[in-house]
Design a protein around this nucleic acid. Structure first.
Lengths: 351, 351
DNA sequence: ATCACTTGTGGGAGCGCTCCCACAGTACCT
DNA sequence: AGGTACTGTGGGAGCGCTCCCACAAGTGAT
């Protein structure tokens, strides 16, 4: 055994071992300092930290992951096709929140697209391979097998938008029920009497909750809930058009529309205009999401704002906590967590 | 705690060694099969693949990274604050392209935010730690130290939007020059004579190129280039307002405006409307980006579409090629690559 | 003085891969 | 016959960490 040594290249990055030599301590001690163990004397800690600084030591993630069996990374799983249904800034806002929550930690963010079947399969492999410590799941449909798969693999996961009222995974959501109520209460307070609702895709739990909120707000205001005023949409512009056409036909006397998304509202607005209805004079219009479209619509659209960035942050915080709980040591908390964040009505000229 | 005792060991994931035993071959051979080496006989390969399938073997990334000194991951670095200047869907479109290009490979995508100073510092650490095999850089300003740092560390990198005409890094860009020409030629062909330009941030190379394209198109059409018709903006709505006000004051006779972004155009439109100018009757308006805002503006905005998703894909492809070139073996190509993708004018009612 | 702790520390034994050397077997030259 | 050149294969060494056991030294109670 003579010739190998060339691989390591001496000008490379310093290792734990080198730091230890420099500080005049053992490898284990350096490791303890790096990982913030309390079982190190002050003097030793200082010496090690000096050596780390001098050598510009940065731990090797791969080695750490291999030895400790953790990755220090979480994944954000993006079911791409669905994402299109979201308002434009949704994605980047969410990401901003996740990034913010992560910036205080050593955790890295992996982005995994799970749109196509092949990508789904790859995802399953990643998860089986425990390539990440936890998973953030965005916009999952009721029949998606992913959440159950995660539970089975015992991988910590947080979902945005629970799939149902009794979601088993930790979840973060905005208050769809309350947001819808805000919208309808606002319309009622503006004197509107015949308020229609164009729903979102009803296989999305949040869309159902918005319908619930719509109903409840009307009831509380003493209005009768007329089922003819509720028309299913799908969050899309085309869906908004179709729904609006149906509504105008059924209830030409309506004087307000609450749409389950801004994009839907945009579709509805086109149809209203074509029908010669003025906004807000004849028909008041309220959207949901407070996206760029709302600000630039003609007239600017009153809309329910969801705190998407905060949702991203909250999801990440919860996930990190779960990951930490899973580590050796750690009294498991195991409480089911369902966080709901408040929405805000942004009033503009359309209502 | 009877049923609790899963120590990870025996029930855990299969290793190379176990696959080797199962297939009746050596560790090295399995490794060769996994990595697609041609130096394996057909029979052996089949046996190993069978064993892999039976055991559900998935390679351990951390171990591989440690042994092979590569990570099989690339990073997309997002200088968050700047991102706000981009049109809303920019980010998710880009991501879609990157994801698509990656979905054929084993590569993973790491998202790194480099907005705050602390995040920047962390980024520097990551890079020094070679936590990724390559880096995708989005929307970098001329004075950003990041690109040079990457060159110094010899980390493959691809930049979107070169910083100058003689960018040293591999870059992918849309044809800002050509896009601006398309916009201006269109306005000229519509009979407009006095065409103003609200620029983007001029420390962004692409914004400069748009000015160049604007100038050249006018010259070619036989128009005089009037410097009073060029007003600097900053891609923002407020910038668009301010610039439009200045332009109306200086050249109240203008009959067309080419804005360097849709958001800028939205700002300009407000001012034009306040000044009683009708669009497109009195003043034609053309934006840039073809964002959601353009589609929903009143009237809908003619705009230059950039193939952002394709840019993401192209950047990723180029980066993967560079990473591959860096691996042992591989005749380095080392040709400087500057890819420029064509834009497309989307004509709407504003012009 | 003994024992039983506690605190701090060093270093062996892996983690699961890739790399590369050694070498058997075969083929095709001289 | 020997030489040379492949192809295919096995397995040792080592990547840079963490984990944990061993152990020295100090502290206090008996």
């Amino acid at each position: 055994m003579a010739s190998h040594g060339v691989r390591g290249r001496s000008g490379g990055r310093p290792t734990l071992e080198e730091v230890a030599a420099r500080a005049g301590v053992g490898r284990g001690t350096v490791s303890r300092v790096i990982n913030g163990s309390p079982r190190v004397s002050e003097a030793t800690r200082a010496a090690v930290e000096a050596a780390v600084a001098e050598l510009g030591y940065v731990p090797n993630t791969a080695a750490r992951a291999l030895a400790a069996n953790r990755t220090d990374a979480i994944a954000l799983v993006v079911p791409e096709p669905e994402t299109r249904f979201f308002t434009e800034p949704y994605f980047s806002d969410m990401l901003r929140g996740v990034g913010a929550a992560l910036s205080d930690t050593e955790m890295q963010l992996l982005l995994i697209f799970a749109g196509s079947d092949r990508e789904r399969q790859r995802l399953a492999q990643y998860l089986a391979a425990h390539r990440v410590d936890g998973v953030l799941l965005v916009s999952v449909h009721a029949d998606d097998p992913l959440p159950d798969m995660l539970s089975q693999l015992e991988i910590p996961a947080v979902i945005s938008g629970p799939r149902s009222a009794d979601e088993t995974l930790t979840s973060v959501d905005s208050d769809n029920y309350g947001g819808a109520r805000q919208a309808v209460e606002h319309l009622v307070s503006r004197g509107r009497r015949t308020i229609a609702h164009i729903t979102g895709r009803l296989d999305v739990y949040g869309a159902q909750r918005r319908v619930d909120g719509y109903r409840e707000a009307l009831r509380e205001a003493g209005h009768q809930v007329d089922e003819l005023l509720i028309e299913p949409g799908d969050f899309s512009e085309g869906g908004g058009r179709r729904a609006m056409e149906a509504l105008l036909e059924r209830r030409p006397d309506l004087d307000a529309v609450f749409a389950a998304s801004d994009v839907t509202a945009a579709g509805a607005r086109q149809v209203l205009r074509e029908a010669g209805r003025r906004i807000p004079d004849d028909v008041a219009l309220v959207g949901y999401d407070d996206s760029a479209i709302a600000r630039h619509m003609e007239p600017p659209l009153t809309s329910v704002r969801q705190p998407i960035e905060e949702m991203g942050r909250a999801m990440t915080d919860l996930l990190l906590r779960e990951v930490a709980d899973r580590r050796p040591s750690a009294t498991r908390e195991l409480e089911r967590r369902q966080m709901v964040l408040a929405t805000e009505l942004v009033e503009r000229a359309s209502s």
